[in-house]
Design a binder for these strands. Structure first.
Length: 270
DNA sequence: GCCGTCACCTGTGGGC
DNA sequence: TGCCCACAGGTGACGG
């Protein structure tokens, strides 16, 4: 589901709702969400507190009061809700953090794709899964993307979805970035010029910034509580099959690239 | 080691 | 209406 702007929106909401509240227990009804023994998660979190929430690419990181961090990836449909103890448990609420104030933080995931990892503060950025992450567009240096794209021979769309190359983009924003950059998603990554790579970086930064300001994109839903993003109103190409290209008027078509639904203007994007 | 495909899950919407 | 199939905002495993 969520790409960088959505995860950032969730992070900001969580920071308002869950910091510095003693956790008195954790319950789970689908243990595969946690990579490891759920008993260990329960043991570490009990009598602990979340003191900060960070984000790296699409990963959320709960910084705990002791020496641990809990890394959470929402994948396609993960969501967090804060509810009261005793509120009915939805069948898609898989991990529940019980606070001592009668509130819960509940991890909800319809498709059960999301994953959590426990790491320690001394090295969590240097080990799996965060150590492989590429730079976010905001922090990319001139020429950095070009050098990485040149080492690969895949569709440019596939390369931009690869979080080890560039962190934060997903299917929606890659379509938007390639449209703004006038680059066809079927181009090979190692045929992208330095100028084009820099343009992609610049547009990725712009799109992510704007989407984050608007609270992300809500096509189906994502939320902490019921916060919806507004960027879907700003989409230029993604989901617009059959509509006219906002630049040239040509019909927008939907194709498959790397198995992903991809929206493209064949006239503008070369 | 690189690249393409499929599996992981459940829900929804379109076509018949 | 009901059934079946394709598809959904992500990633990792596997095989060629």
């Amino acid at each position: 589901m969520p790409e960088l702007p959505e995860v950032e929106t969730v992070r900001r909401q969580l920071k308002k709702l869950v910091l510095n509240k003693p956790i008195i227990g954790v319950t789970s009804n689908y243990e595969k969400i946690f990579n490891g023994n759920i008993k260990e998660l329960e043991k570490v979190l009990t009598n602990n507190e979340i003191i900060d929430v960070e984000r790296y690419g699409k990963y959320l990181v709960f910084i705990l009061k002791d020496n641990h961090v809990l890394i959470s990836h929402l994948r396609m449909e993960g969501k967090y809700f804060v509810k009261n103890e005793g509120d009915e448990i939805n069948k898609h609420e898989h991990i529940i953090f019980h606070f001592n104030n009668n509130q819960n933080l509940r991890y909800h995931d319809t498709r059960k794709f999301g994953r959590m990892d426990l790491r320690t503060k001394d090295n969590y950025l240097k080990v799996d899964p965060l150590h492989k992450l590429g730079s976010e567009p905001e922090f990319m240096k001139e020429g950095e993307l070009y050098n990485l794209l040149n080492k690969k021979n895949v569709f440019i769309k596939v390369a931009l979805l690869d979080q080890t190359i560039i962190a934060g983009l997903g299917n929606i924003y890659v379509d938007e970035v390639l449209f703004l950059s006038k680059i066809h998603p079927n181009r090979r990554s190692n045929e992208i010029s330095l100028e084009e790579a820099n343009l992609i970086t610049k547009n990725a930064k712009l799109v992510l910034e704007k989407a984050t300001k608007l609270g992300g994109t809500t096509i189906k839903s994502f939320s902490v509580g019921e916060v919806d993003g507004l960027f879907q109103n700003e989409l230029l190409i993604h989901t617009k099959v059959g509509e006219s290209c906002p630049v040239c008027g040509e019909e927008i078509v939907k194709i498959k690239v790397g198995g992903r639904g991809t929206y493209v203007c064949n006239n503008c994007q070369k």
